[in-house]
Amino acid sequence: MSRVHDMGGRYGDGAVNPADNATFAQDWHARALALTLAAGALGQWNIDVSRHARETLSPKDYSRFSYYEKWLAGLADMLVNLGVLTREELKAGHATGVSELASRILKADAVAGVLAKGSPYTRDGAPNAEFKPGDRVKTRRPAHNIQVAGGHTRLPGYASGLIGEVVLLHGAHVLPDSNAHGLGEAAEPLYAVAFAARDVWGDEAGAWDEVVLDLWQSYLEPTA
C-alpha cells in the first residue's frame, strides 16, 4: 500500500548527523539541482508530477540513491516518458537534433526573475471549506490516492485513520493527488491539522507533544 518515500515514523535509521550541513556537499549536487530547475522551466510538468517521478523509483533505487541521485533519476524518467528526450538519446549521451521546445529555454538573464516569481498554488473557485479551526476531523484510511491506484498522495501513512483538530485554514490549494496525474488541479481547501503525538505514536510520545500536517479537505471527514 505504501511507497518507500513515506518514511515518517519508521524505525531503524539511526542518529541524525548535524555535521552533514553543507548546502551542496559536492559540485554535482549543485549542478543536479540547477539542471532540474532549468528543465522544469520548460513547462512540461508540475511539482506534483516531479515528486511522483521520484517516489516511483523502485524501492531499491530510492533507498540506495543519495538525495540528488533521486532527483536526476526522476528527471531522466520524466524527460523520456513525457517525450522530451528519447531512450536512444539517453543511451548515446547525445541529442539527435534540436527540440521543438527550444524556444522555451531558460536563459541566464531570466533566472533571477523566474526564481523570484514563484508559482502560487492557491486557486479561486474551489469548493467551500467544510471545516474551521477548532473542528475535530478524522483522516482517511488507508492513506492512498482514491483516483489512481498506487498514485501520488500527500497523506502520510502514519497520519491515516486518526482524529485531530483543525488549527489553520490555508485557503484552497491545488490537489496533488489529481495534479500529479494530469487530472486537473482540482483545488480544495487545505488545513493544518494537529494530532496529539500519543494518538499517533502511543505512550512513547511526550504527553503534550503534537504533530501538525497540512491536509486537503478530501483527506478528512467530520467526527461526531
Binding site: 549542478r31 540547477a34 536526476l72 547525445h94 541529442a95 527540440s99
Partner: peptide, 23 residues
C-alpha cells in the same frame, strides 16, 4: 549529471550559463 546536461544543451533546452546563475 554531465550526460543529461550535454544532451539537453544539444537539444537547445538548457543554457549552461543559466545553471551557473541558479547555483
Amino acid at each position: 549529471v554531465r550526460a543529461l546536461e550535454t544532451i539537453l544543451t544539444e537539444k537547445g533546452l538548457i543554457d549552461p550559463a543559466a545553471l551557473d546563475e541558479i547555483i
